[in-house]
Amino acid sequence: MRKINSEETARNDSRGTDRLVKLLELLRAARAPEPSPGYLAAFWPRLRQKLPSRRRAIIQPLRYGGLAAAAAALILWVTLAGTERAGRTGPASPVYALATASSPAAGERPETNYVSGTPRGKENDRRAGTDYVLPRISARENGRLEV
């Protein structure tokens, strides 16, 4: 019985080895075909054209730095100065336009002092440089609008 088992094991081992040898042979056959000499000769010249040049390596960071600085300046300007300027209409109230307090004629008061729905200043505040929102049509009619 033991002899039969050991023979069977040996047979299985030999079959396993045989299968492995066959598998390795198939895999070796799966190797890439040898590239042609023409392909190999053209490989480096093609690659060379794609290499980042030293000049570009210096200029590129500067270019990105310049773009980043311009973007930062734009963000800073929008944040601090905003887009509210005399004569501009707000996105929330397109029928209104901004005018400065120094422009209104004496005795007149701005109809409203809201910009894009945000309260801004006091209704009767007429200090120079304070922004008010005037109805676009009446402002034009009054000739007070600085566009």
Binding site: A32, P35, L40, F43, L47, K50
Partner: peptide, 28 residues
Amino acid sequence: LVRKYQGKIYSLAYSMVGNHSDADDLAQ
């Protein structure tokens, strides 16, 4: 260095992806 190793790198790429076009692109 490229000339020295281009064949091996191409071969590795080819064995992994199985076609010339991708293998060439990968090697580059």
